[in-house]
Design a protein around this nucleic acid. Structure first.
Length: 269
DNA sequence: CTCGCCACCTGGGGGC
DNA sequence: TGCCCCCAGGTGGCGA
């Protein structure tokens, strides 16, 4: 479920709760996540979480001499609970920090919990990541430059984390609607004007999603809690056959690179 | 390099 | 009620 907004909302919920707290225990109920949970992760007790950062869709718990890297995959969520709360199905991993329990639930187990003591820029999963879409780095000219020589459809371009991070399947469709761009358009055919609209649209889309998620945040931090709010308000995602909220044309669904794309054939060219 | 495709997993919904 | 098929928000890795 998580795209960048869900991960960022999770980060904002966790950061004030975890920063400065000492890890008192680690429990791994199911080590078979995307990669096996390592022995180093199991022996994190004694370290102190200094801060919680995010890079793309990765959450990074800064422990001073290294980072715990958490990815929520497609179905992961994190909750803060009182220690001792009984684990339910798919609750694979716990971090106990004094009187706080951080629990990972991930039915599909595409998520990951990794430890690295290396510099983050050199970590294989993080080194090749592209621009943070909410940073000033994602400016029209920069986006335009990124699209040069890239013949794939702009929808796939948006979801390619080596270029821009954090834009998943939902927000790719939503951003392209806001920008008025057909998802099938080749990235290298996007004009500077297109890229100006697109950069703005991406930021607006992600910021709106973060705002919507932030309102439902308390002790529960995770994708499920925000589902209703987000998905009921999409412009095009999941709305095949329904009238466009802007022009009333029927929303279309196509498949690109094996993923559904939704768009308005009238508003998007 | 780029690109298309498969893989990893579980669960929910629809059709029969 | 059961079974089977399809679909799902991510992304690393493969071969062409």
């Amino acid at each position: 479920m998580p795209e960048l907004p869900e991960v960022e909302v999770t980060r904002r919920g966790l950061a004030p709760q975890l920063a400065g707290r000492r890890i008192s225990a680690v429990e791994v109920r199911e080590p078979r996540l995307r990669w096996p949970v390592s022995r180093e992760v199991r022996s994190l007790a004694g370290r102190t979480v200094r801060a919680v950062h995010r890079r793309g869709k990765y959450l990074l718990l800064d422990c001073g001499d290294g980072h715990l890297i958490v990815h929520l995959g497609m179905s992961g969520s994190l909750r803060l609970l009182p220690p001792g709360t009984p684990a339910q199905k798919h609750d694979h991993f716990d971090l106990v920090l004094g009187d706080r329990l951080l629990r990972l639930r991930d039915p599909r187990r595409f998520g990951a919990v990794l430890w690295t003591s290396r510099a983050l820029d050199s970590h294989p999963l993080l080194a090749g990541l592209g621009l943070e879409p909410l940073s000033p780095a994602l400016a029209p000219a920069r986006l335009h430059a990124l699209t040069r020589g890239c013949r794939m459809p702009v929808k796939q371009f948006l979801m390619d984390a080596r270029r821009i991070v954090g834009v998943g399947n939902i927000y790719a469709s939503e951003s392209l609607f806001r920008a008025g761009i057909d998802p099938r358009k080749r990235a290298n055919r996007a004009s500077l004007n297109d890229c100006t609209k697109l950069a703005k649209a991406i930021k607006q889309t992600l910021r709106a999603a973060i705002r919507a998620g932030g309102s439902s945040l308390r002790d529960y931090v995770g994708a499920d809690g925000m589902l209703g709010e987000f998905q009921s308000r999409t412009w095009v995602y999941g709305r095949e056959g329904e009238p466009c909220r802007r022009c009333h044309s029927a929303i279309k669904r196509i498949v690109q690179a094996g993923r559904s794309s939704f768009f308005c054939p009238t508003c998007q060219r």
